[in-house]
Amino acid sequence: MKKASNLKFRNESALGWLLLLPSFIILGIFVFYPMLKTFFLSTQLTDLMGNPIKFIGFKNFSNLFTSDSFMTSFTITLIFVFFSTLLTLVMAYLMAMSASQKIMGIAVFRTMFSSTMGVSVTVASILWLFMFNPQIGMFSKILTFLHLPQINFLSDPTWSLVAIIGTTVWMNLGFAFLILLGAIQAIPQDLYQVADLDGASWLMRLRKITIPATSPTIFFVTVVTLINAFQTFGQVDILTSGGPDYHTNLLVYAIYQDAFVNHSVGRASAQSVILTIIIMLFTMIQFYVKNRKGANYANE
């Protein structure tokens, strides 16, 4: 009897492994192998074709942390990620709240608000490139109209990052809006009715009902936007190519430049490893926060 169940168990687990095999193979080839190889290459001096020549330990890393261009990249990436995620979230939430009202023709606004989802990164960047043009761009015209001094958005060290953040937020809005709108609409209406009976203010209802009820979705949107922000590439390439003086040289763009333009695969791999660690850290923090929150709700 015991033997039979053991056998059955073994068969079942064999079947389980068999069923998992295809995804293991695919993940192994396309995710785990490249990842391990990147870790390996980050400890190597590579030749101009990207082949490892000799082991140099953590020299790629120590070189990075003493190089001005990397430290600029690193700092501005963190600033960029923080502001683009925060702004996307706040703006998308406000848009989702205003679009969840039940008035006539609201569907038109919902479509408009989510329309940036249908624009590819390249197209969006080109559109914004026109708007940032120092002579005929929309922003330049507005500044002239308001008699304000001209700002060259794409070549000023401070404003260029603002320009990239603005473009990115605009591009991310559609997706974040759509997901948040769905969450807000899924909140049971009777909660609001009860709150109305109690005479709760708008702010109170937002704090006590809307935000808590949508917090899992807010969490999801934050994670997705944050990871997206770390991987920003297209808008940097088209708007500034990392300039002026590395002030928009976001990490992924720096990695691309080092690996494929400057042929320093070792240095690029080291930066990839750093980026991986950062993203992993953020994800871990967020999951930790989420788990604690979940536990709190269960207690209440």
Partner: peptide, 17 residues
């Protein structure tokens, strides 16, 4: 001096300007 920056399309922008 007009500065079109360093983007991948800066050269095209300059040319059409």
């Amino acid at each position: 001096l007009v500065d079109y920056g360093t983007g991948a399309n800066a050269g095209d922008t300059e040319l059409s300007a």
